[in-house]
């Protein structure tokens, strides 16, 4: 007899994904190519097996993604026979809807919001599934699993529906949509341990590799044409890896020699800097994330 002991966090995430498929007409999974959204894809496979994942993937491409991530994305979609929708921040810029940031900390990260909201409108998505976790950042600690947004994608932290037991209320009015966070209760370590246990493939930039980088504000930046660099900021080659795979312009590397999943997990366990510590966009101010969320950032 095989005694199957459920992993409670995995069971909860699968329950949430099935509620999305059952309660919404046009759900979509927001896919960044990062480890959290890759984990979501695996959970969705498990939720609906042997049927296919019953919703498409949406990637909001800033054009500044690591090429390794894009390659990985296309491979995964092909292997699993998923439907992928890509919408580009460059198009929003060309249409004059958003303006490219300039200078030292220029990034397209916050420009993604407009492209995302346009895609939601274009496809009439009523539920957007994302890989955000409550342990990432203080403002996320209070996020709901089903987070109702208005027409403008806005989040009102004072007016959130209480979530009792595991009953999820996804009923919405016309114009509203819901952001769904199935791995709300996972920590960074949970995600890494799951990837290791399940042997899930992830983009190569999560593992240590040699890269041309430069140092600024105590952080390690990728040196290439998309990342603004002062003439005095010297480019050197280092062994690094990434803990998140956002834009090249807002994702700092960490020094590492971890080339296997076991080594990465061991490093995360030992690590004393939070994952978002390497997110340059959060450093702008203490309340940075909360402000971005209010205006519809994921």
């Amino acid at each position: 007899m095989n005694l199957f002991i459920p992993n409670p966090k995995e069971a909860e995430s699968i329950h949430i994904l099935r509620e999305v498929a059952a309660q919404f007409e046009r759900p979509v999974l927001l896919f960044s190519g990062g480890k959290d959204s890759i984990t979501l894809v695996r959970l969705a496979q498990k939720a609906f097996y042997p049927a296919k994942i019953p919703f498409p993937l949406l990637h909001v491409d800033t054009g500044h993604n690591f090429p390794e991530t894009i390659e990985f994305r296309d491979q995964l979609v092909k292997e699993l026979g998923l439907e992928l929708i890509v919408r580009n921040v460059q198009d929003s810029i060309d249409q004059g809807k958003v303006r490219e940031e300039k200078g030292r900390y220029a990034s397209r990260n916050s420009l993604q919001t407009t492209t995302l909201l346009d895609a939601i409108e274009e496809f009439k998505f009523d539920a957007c599934i994302g890989g955000a976790r409550r342990d990432e950042e203080k403002a996320r600690a209070k996020e709901r699993v089903f987070s109702v947004r208005d027409d403008f994608g806005q989040w009102d932290e004072k007016n959130q529906r209480p979530e009792l037991f595991d009953m999820l209320n996804g009923k919405i009015q016309v114009g509203q949509n819901v952001r769904v966070f199935p791995i709300s209760n996972w920590t960074e370590l949970d995600v890494w341990e799951y990837i290791r246990t399940e042997n899930i493939a992830i983009p190569s930039i999560y593992f240590a590799h040699k890269r041309e980088v430069f140092f600024r504000d105590g952080l390690i930046w990728t040196a290439n044409e998309y990342v603004y660099r002062e003439p005095h900021e010297k480019v050197i080659e280092k062994w690094v890896r990434f803990r998140t795979v956002g834009d090249m312009t807002c994702t700092a590397a960490v020094l590492s020699e971890a080339t296997s999943l076991d080594e990465v997990v061991a490093e995360i366990r030992e690590s004393t800097i939070s994952e978002r510590g390497a997110r340059i966009d959060d450093k702008r101010s203490e309340a940075a994330m909360e402000t971005r969320k209010k205006v519809g950032y994921f």
Binding site: M1, N2, L3, F4, I5, P6, P8, E10, A11, E12, I14, H15, R18, A47
Partner: peptide
């Protein structure tokens, strides 16, 4: 394929 499932399983 399982023979049995424990409470809490999805």
């Amino acid at each position: 394929k399982l023979d049995s499932a424990a409470p809490g399983s999805s």
